[in-house]
C-alpha cells in the first residue's frame, strides 16, 4: 500500500498530463491550466514546512549554543517582525493592513532591496577574479575560451570597437546560436528521458523507499 499508491499516482497523473497536451478540448485545457494553480497552492503548505524548518534549525542553534548562535536571533527577529507587519486585522485604521501596510512594503523595498542589489553587484568583483584565474591559455580549450572572451570584450572599447564589432557580433550570432541549439536539443532529449523515467517509475529517489 505505502509503496503502490504513490507509484500509481505517478503513473496516472504523469500519463494524464502528457495526454492532455494533445487534446485541445476545453475541459482538458482547464485541467492543464489549473495544474499550475494547484502546484502553487500546495507550495504554500510546503512553505509552511519550510518556515517550520527555518525556525527549528535556528531555535536548535540557540538552544545548543552552536557556532554563531547569536545571529539566529536576528533571523528569527526579522522573520517574526515581518510576519507581524504582514498581518491584516483591525479594520481600515489599524497599522496592520497586510501587504498594503506601510511597514511591510517599505521595509522590503527600501531596506532589503539595497542588500539585494549589493549582493548582485558582487558579481562585478567575482567576474574579475574568475577572469584572472581562468582566462589563461593553458590548453587548446582554454585558449579558445580566452579568444572568445577577448573578441567580445574589445567590442566595448571606443576606436578598436569599429574593427572588432563585426567579428564579435558574428560570434554572438552564429557560433553562439549553433552551440545553443546543440545544448537545447540535448537538454530537450534529456528532459523527455527524465520525464519518461519518472512516469515509468524508474526514477523515484524523490519518493523515498518505504
Amino acid at each position: 500500500m505505502k509503496r503502490q499508491i504513490p507509484l500509481a499516482l505517478v503513473f496516472i497523473f504523469g500519463w494524464l498530463m502528457l495526454a492532455l497536451y494533445f487534446i485541445p478540448l476545453e475541459g482538458a485545457q482547464k485541467v492543464n491550466e489549473n495544474m499550475l494553480d494547484w502546484t502553487s497552492i500546495i507550495g504554500i503548505f510546503a512553505l509552511a514546512l519550510g518556515i517550520w524548518s527555518l525556525i527549528t534549525v535556528n531555535l536548535d542553534r540557540i538552544k545548543h549554543k552552536k557556532r554563531d548562535w547569536q545571529y539566529s536571533f536576528i533571523t528569527l527577529f526579522g522573520l517574526f517582525g515581518m510576519i507581524i507587519f504582514g498581518l491584516k486585522f483591525g479594520g481600515e485604521n489599524s497599522m496592520f493592513q497586510g501587504q498594503e501596510s506601510y511597514m511591510f512594503r517599505h521595509f522590503f523595498n527600501d531596506i532589503l532591496i539595497p542588500i539585494y542589489s549589493t549582493m548582485f553587484s558582487l558579481l562585478a568583483f567575482f567576474i574579475a577574479s574568475a577572469a584572472y584565474r581562468a582566462f589563461r591559455a593553458r590548453s587548446a580549450l582554454a585558449s579558445i575560451l580566452l579568444i572568445g572572451a577577448i573578441i567580445v570584450m574589445i567590442r566595448f572599447f571606443p576606436f578598436v570597437a569599429e574593427y572588432t564589432r563585426p567579428v564579435a557580433d558574428w560570434i554572438l550570432n552564429v557560433p553562439n546560436l549553433a552551440a545553443k541549439r546543440a545544448i537545447w536539443m540535448g537538454v530537450g532529449l534529456g528532459i523527455v528521458a527524465t520525464g519518461l523515467k519518472v512516469i515509468l517509475g524508474i526514477e523515484r529517489a524523490y519518493m523515498g523507499r518505504d
Partner: peptide
Amino acid sequence: LAFIVASTAGLLMT
C-alpha cells in the same frame, strides 16, 4: 510529492 513530480514531469515534457 508523487503527484507534483509526476504531473509536472508530464506537463513539461511535451
